[in-house]
Design a protein around this nucleic acid. Structure first.
Length: 361
DNA sequence: AACCCGGGGCG
DNA sequence: CGCCCAGGGTT
């Protein structure tokens, strides 16, 4: 029950709450999801904001809420359309989990996002952070919502030197937040911490001279705010090499295929992607798997794409393919835009414009 | 606890 | 380029 950290006696919790919330009320950015407390809107925004910057999320959020204004609209949508709305945001399991969970809200909770902690936590894609965010922002409950921002801010303010890369450390921060969160306005308190982390208490060169809680900050007092939080390094990514085949049939249509329903980039589409191999063997290996003959015509520019855990080096090859296919699908250049492709494949698609004037019109 | 899952911003 | 992430699911 007791962690090896306790709030310093001299830390003035009420003054900290007051200064943080006042600053937030005056300085908070006007963001689309802050227009009201609709739990569904808060939910969608929090899912999109996972691992993703505010400026990136804004256009996606607006488009998403226009297309799916309520849980009912999203629940009845086709998953491919939902993925299309998510195209380019990354972490596509977020979209699939949100879709699954919203369907459950419609079926099991009469379309009302549950305000009960245990019920809400059961929903797919709602973990400790999103749980606390929705409970505090949409339902005004005093629950912690600890993300990377909050850990950074609090590690500095209270001078906590635990390694934030360790899962256990997050529990420590949740315990700390429970002790210092405002019971009167937990929404502004939590959002204030995140806003502070985004605007002032940044990872590098924090703007301590502009900080509303500078007088409460132990790291500032010690002058080591730049060294906090402490985070152990993750291991380096490995590089994987591929060929991507941009092939057209006799009608000039492109061959694309749907990725498997699990693993990296699940259920998204791609031009055929094969492990890099001897170019001499490629046609034969292709035919064994796809059932059609190919004639390679030339190379494009190699594409590099960095994921969090792996780096892809993709060599682009153009060519022709026979019409008799066992797997995959032929689509016109115009139809390509109707399918969700990951960014790495969009980088390949960019090269079509140079080779054909059909695209981009 | 370790590993998997994308992408963009920034210095 | 390397580092930073507004995390959750799975095993």
């Amino acid at each position: 029950m007791s962690s090896n950290f306790s709030i310093p006696v001299l830390f003035n919790i009420h003054a900290f709450q007051r200064d943080l919330i006042l600053w937030y009320s005056e300085q908070k950015r006007t963001l689309p999801w802050r227009a009201n407390q609709d739990p569904y809107r808060v939910w969608v925004s929090e899912i999109m904001l996972q691992q993703t910057q505010v400026d990136t999320v804004i256009p996606y959020f607006n488009q998403f809420m226009t297309r799916y204004p309520t849980v009912y609209d999203l629940a009845k949508a086709d998953e491919q359309d939902v993925l299309k709305s998510w195209e380019g945001l990354g972490y596509y399991s977020r979209a699939r989990n949100l879709h699954t969970a919203v369907k459950e809200v419609v079926e099991e909770y009469n379309g009302e996002v549950p305000s009960d902690k245990k019920e809400l936590k059961k929903l797919k894609g709602i973990g400790p952070y999103t749980l606390g965010a929705i409970l505090s922002i949409a339902f005004d409950q005093a629950e912690p919502a600890v993300d990377g921002n909050v850990m950074r801010v609090i590690s500095r303010v209270l001078h906590i030197e635990e390694d934030i890369a360790k899962p256990k450390t997050k529990t420590l921060f949740e315990d700390v937040i429970r002790e210092i969160i405002s019971q009167e306005d937990p929404s502004s308190f939590n959002q204030g911490l995140m806003e502070l982390g985004a605007l002032i208490c940044t990872p590098k060169k924090p703007k301590c001279d502009q900080c509303p809680v500078q007088e409460h900050c132990l790291a500032y007092e010690y002058g080591n705010q730049e060294d906090l939080p402490i985070k152990s390094k993750s291991k380096k990514q490995k590089t994987e090499n591929f060929h991507v085949l941009v092939l057209t049939n006799s009608k000039g249509e492109y061959l694309i295929e749907k990725r498997p329903s699990d693993g990296l980039l699940a259920n998204l589409w791609q031009f055929p992607l094969l492990p890099k191999q001897d170019a001499e063997q490629l046609p034969e290996n292709f035919q064994n798997h796809y059932g059609a003959e190919i004639a390679l015509e030339g190379k494009g520019e190699s594409v590099k794409h960095v994921f969090s855990h792996v780096i892809w080096e993709v060599e682009v090859l153009f060519g022709k393919v026979g019409d008799d296919l066992q797997t995959g699908k032929f689509v016109t250049a115009q139809e390509l835009k109707n399918y969700p492709f990951p960014n790495v494949q969009h980088k390949v698609m960019e090269q079509l414009k140079d080779r054909s004037s059909i695209l981009g019109n």
